[in-house]
């Protein structure tokens, strides 16, 4: 036999049912809340995925740019070191050439330059311009006109211009009219040597190849 009266049992049933309903209301609310917050998180992650990917790509790009610049700078440092040494060789060659201006080889050199220039001009009346110091040398050279006439096929008369050239050596040769000039000044020849023999000079100066960090394409 129950300890509760029928009235008590009815009251208890009402309360128990209310408690069960209350429990369900709270549980349903919790489930719904959980689902909504999970969905919100998934949506947010999905919405921001592209943005995050772009930011990561930018970060990677920054690293690539730093490395790219370093490779370029490294390449330039090595190239500049080579260029500086080649320039140094040219400077020393210039000084060495200046020391040789009293030699017989230099006199022959001037004679041959004038002859070659005269032939290029095509002979005729030609004027030779040289340094003031070289003018007596030129005046002593004989047979220039004959040599040029023979090759150019035209009677040639060579005269030394009064105007001196500003150069470390060599000659400038003009026709009488002054509209054709062959520039054989040593400075000009040095430039031509640089252009023509740059690779050969580099091979002599740097016979052992030093591995360099080349910039990536």
């Amino acid at each position: 036999m129950s300890a509760f009266s029928p009235a008590d049992q009815i009251e208890k049933a009402i309360i128990d049912e209310a408690k069960a309903q209350a429990k369900k209301i709270v549980e349903d609310a919790e489930v719904a809340a959980r689902q909504l917050t999970e969905e919100a998180l998934e949506n947010a992650q999905s919405n921001l995925a592209g943005w995050a990917a772009r930011r990561k790509q930018m970060a990677q790009g920054t690293g690539d740019r730093i490395l790219g610049k370093a490779r370029n700078d490294a390449h330039m440092r090595v190239m500049n070191a080579k260029a500086a040494m080649i320039n140094e060789a040219f400077q020393q060659a210039r000084k060495q050439f200046e020391k040789e201006r009293e030699s017989a080889q230099y006199k022959t050199f001037l004679k041959n330059l004038i002859t070659n220039a005269g032939i290029q001009i095509g002979g005729g009346d030609i004027v030779v311009l040289v340094r003031k110091e070289d003018q007596p040398i030129i005046l002593k050279i004989t047979g220039l006109g004959t040599a040029i006439s023979k090759q150019a096929g035209q009677t040639t008369k060579v005269s030394v211009g009064k105007q001196a050239i500003d150069a470390i050596g060599g000659v400038m040769v003009q026709n009488k009219e002054g509209n054709i000039t062959v520039d054989y000044r040593v400075e000009t020849l040095l430039t031509q040597v640089d252009v023509k023999y740059r690779n050969a000079i580099a091979k002599i100066l740097f016979p052992i190849e030093v591995k360099t960090e080349k910039p990536r394409e």
Binding site: M85, A93, L205
Partner: peptide
């Protein structure tokens, strides 16, 4: 590498200078 290049070049500069000077003379061949 730049320092090694410089050292290497110093050892061969005399030969290079001679080459350049002879190249200048070659224009008056």
């Amino acid at each position: 590498e730049a320092a090694a290049i410089e050292e290497q070049a110093k050892k061969h500069i005399k030969k290079t200078v001679d080459f350049i000077v002879s190249a200048i003379y070659s224009f008056g061949g």
